[in-house]
């Protein structure tokens, strides 16, 4: 029993070494983003735990789906059918517009836009650091996910992949304080950058002059500048435009179109040259007839 009063002779030395090591890690991770391999290795250890943690939620979803009543399912089916019909009709028009757009672009001798390819990913039910705006998705290295990959949902831009693990990846939301997206106003092409500020329902649009033509209700879309996000995906809708006389730029805030708070499924976007082997394609199907 005298064991219990023994303490390692080098505790203090170990402590000091570990403090230095931690500080080194912190700096390397924050300043130089050099810890990707370490994170990936640790991610492999953590992955089974994350899987176990999500099991109860998945089971609950499964049982509630199994025991859904027949009529509910029929109603849901009906609603989805109608929605699909409506969307197909719109898609036909879109196809014509796209052709027209390509023709006009070729007349102008402008380069044709690349088509993007997408793949569905699910948000894993794991809580991350509540003071960062991040989520985990169930796609990793085998799915050709890469750091910096844009992530969208049905309504707009969600964020981008920041860490890729063997089974799962972390996505930083556009509302994270360290995230920003180059955007433009869809109505008139006015350029800005949308900064996250830590709240899921608000983005700050910076570098907009006081005299700019922008008002509440304007839709802002990605501008494609910076080369990370493909152009023309909707990002947010302007909620407030407040000129600040005496300051170079106005105070503009916007609210994200994507449901950052309770999104379940997201889409990973690949440009043509970096596309994975056999993804579901985002290009519209050939029009019927």
């Amino acid at each position: 029993m005298n064991l219990s009063f023994r303490q390692g002779p080098y505790t203090l030395v170990k402590l000091l070494l570990l403090v230095l090591l931690s500080l080194g890690l912190l700096v390397a991770d924050h300043r130089f983003r050099a810890m990707e391999p370490v994170r990936a290795a640790l991610g492999t250890i953590v992955a089974p735990i994350q899987y176990v943690v999500t099991l109860p939620g998945q089971l609950f979803g499964l049982t509630s789906e199994t025991f859904k009543s027949h009529t509910t399912l029929l109603e849901e089916n009906q609603a989805l059918r109608e929605k699909q019909l409506r969307q197909e009709a719109r898609l036909q028009r879109l196809w014509t517009l796209e052709q027209e757009n390509a023709r006009l672009r070729s007349l102008l001798d402008a380069s044709r836009q690349v088509e993007e390819q997408v793949r569905v990913a699910e948000i894993v039910g794991v809580d991350l650091d509540p003071f960062r705006q991040k989520v985990v998705i169930n796609r990793g290295e085998p799915d050709a996910t890469f750091v910096g990959q844009p992530v969208i949902d049905a309504r707009g831009v969600i964020g981008q992949v920041v860490h890729v693990g063997p089974f799962a990846s972390e996505v930083m939301l556009i509302s994270d304080p360290s995230h920003s997206v180059p955007v433009r106003v869809a109505r008139n092409g006015l350029r800005s950058v949308a900064f996250g500020n830590g709240k899921t329902d608000q983005l700050d649009l910076r570098f907009i002059p006081n005299s700019a033509d922008i008002r509440a209700g304007d839709i802002i879309v990605t501008s494609g500048l910076g080369g990370r996000f493909p152009p023309d995906y909707p990002v947010a809708v302007v909620t407030r435009f407040e000129p600040r006389p005496g300051r170079p730029f106005a105070a503009v805030s916007a609210s994200p179109l994507a449901e950052l708070n309770h999104v379940q499924e997201v889409l990973l976007v690949w440009r043509d040259r970096e596309s994975p082997a056999a993804p579901e394609t985002a290009a519209p199907a050939e029009p019927p007839g």
Binding site: L15, L18, V19, L21, S22, L23, G24, L25, L26, A28, D29, H30, M35, V38, R39, L42, G43, I45, V46, I49, Q50, V126, D127, L128, D129, R132, K134, V136, H163, E170
Partner: peptide
């Protein structure tokens, strides 16, 4: 602490340093 950092996606070393101390 390091595993906690990896699992919660915080800066590597954040939990490690504070828990160790």
């Amino acid at each position: 602490g390091l595993l906690t950092d990896a699992a919660t996606g915080s800066l590597l070393g954040l939990h490690a340093l504070s828990l160790m101390l």
